[in-house]
Write a protein that binds this DNA or RNA. Structure first.
Lengths: 259, 259
DNA sequence: CGGCGATATATGTAGGACTCATTTCCCCCT
DNA sequence: AGGGGGAAATGAGTCCTACATATATCGCCG
């Protein structure tokens, strides 16, 4: 099967590709190097989380330049095999957090309201699913984490500390996701929140001001349902919470547009 | 846990939780640039197969160096969004082109079964949601695309062309996701499939041999439900399909482990 | 003993120079 | 006039060098 380059008839709207079997297909060095790095990991029996050789070491060891090594590293980290941390080094990835690549939201124009709506829709799917699973899988530690986050959030609201509220909110949703015991859902939730934070013309979460009161109550409802092990109730509560948040977001938009 | 790019408290099993909320995880430029390139593609309304701006153009346009652009390009090509050809240029990838990039899959990663199971669970959530939405939103063009993909898949099965079957299968699921009109779900489905292809010790999709017959039928059921506009039926059909595929996967594992 | 700042190490970013695959196009030859 | 071939142009791939910035380590000083 021949690597990345070439392939695939396309067929659709093209006029005349007439794929002339360019079989030979040049194979770039960074691709070869990426494979060799994987081989090296296996050879050294490195475990997930272990440190890898530095970029310079890899370069001299594989007989190439740091540039090429870096490009290979980007490929491997994009497909979730290794992780790079500035100032620390390269690490073999633990299979959690692979979904990341953290560059979804391809078509995301920050200003497009329709896309904001789609993002909420996406969040609703993820968080409802996470809550549903959490209800049947949450460990005592998970429950404690969720409760604590909810409390942080509530405190932030009562004392008017917006910053604290936001942190609690973030923690709450992430904790619920974690309680689902599904690392992919955790990633999806995290990514969705990041995108929203990044995109919102409005502050951060849709949760601006007015909704805070209800948000605290809705968090409590979600927590209760999960604690009770009631999967459907948990899913419904999460869905409701997201819908309310969206509603609040809409109101805020209106307020800004008009007066 | 700790996502890809770093970030977020983690805690979990670490020795010293003490999560001092390292609030703003450092975010490397190449990652930002990768996103911007995707955004640019959408903005320019580039179609699969189209030429993209050159590396130098991207660099000056995004206000960065060619080095960074190249690293971003490697990421995007690793996850199958664009394609680079020496001496020619950069091109937007056609979605089916993803099957080429999985030559990395050969190097098995931990692949504990639990991980695979969680991935199926994730896919079930995404595809059920996508199907549900597609039932109420699919345009005539979407329906045509789905039907065509299903047909390709069926033909691949009948003629025993595994390669064709896989391509059809990929196209089918992507088409359904697109029909949901939610770009985030499309990305989620795409990512999930990519990961599965990459991780499976078994061939590519769980769909090896035995299940192919049923898979074709299940595709038809999903298509029919979407066409009828029956959201619940569509979601259920998708869920069933995923469950069956997982079951097939399990059987295949057993067969390999024992005899 | 504890905190704090210099230092060392690592990835991240910038930019220049050059190689090599591919395409284009013009000129020359038949 | 038409076709073939080779030079020039284009654009990704490779290498290098220098510097920025995040992180860890160690040792000095109180």
């Amino acid at each position: 099967m021949d690597g990345n380059p070439v392939l695939a008839a396309t067929g659709s709207s093209a006029s005349a590709p007439a794929d002339t079997q360019d079989t030979v297909a040049y194979r770039p060095g960074y691709e070869r190097v990426a494979e060799e790095i994987l081989r090296l990991i296996a050879e050294l029996k490195l475990q997930p989380g272990d440190r890898m050789p530095t970029e310079n070491q890899l370069a001299s060891r594989l007989g190439t330049s740091r540039t090429v090594v870096r490009e290979a590293v980007k490929i491997l980290s994009a497909i979730g095999r290794i992780r790079a941390q500035k100032g620390r080094g390269l690490f073999v990835a633990n299979d959690e957090g692979m979904l990341g690549s953290s560059l979804w939201g391809s078509f995301f124009l920050p200003t497009d309201l329709d896309h904001v709506y789609r993002l909420f829709e996406f969040r609703r799917v993820q968080e409802a699913a996470a809550s549903r699973l959490a209800a049947t899988r949450a460990t005592p530690a998970d429950l404690r984490a969720i409760e604590e986050a909810a409390e942080t959030c509530r405190e932030g609201h009562l004392t008017g500390q917006r910053e604290l509220f936001d942190r609690g909110d973030d923690e709450f949703h992430l904790s619920v996701a974690k309680a689902s015991q599904n690392p992919f859902l955790v990633d999806a939730v995290r990514e969705a929140r990041r995108l929203q934070r990044q995109s919102s013309t409005i502050g951060l979460h849709g949760t601006v001001g007015g909704h805070a009161e209800e948000a605290v109550a809705e968090h409590a409802a979600i927590y209760q349902a999960i604690k009770d092990g009631d999967a459907e109730a948990a899913a419904q509560a999460a869905t409701l919470h997201l819908d309310q948040t969206l509603e609040d977001y809409r109101r805020e938009i209106q307020r800004r547009v008009f007066g």
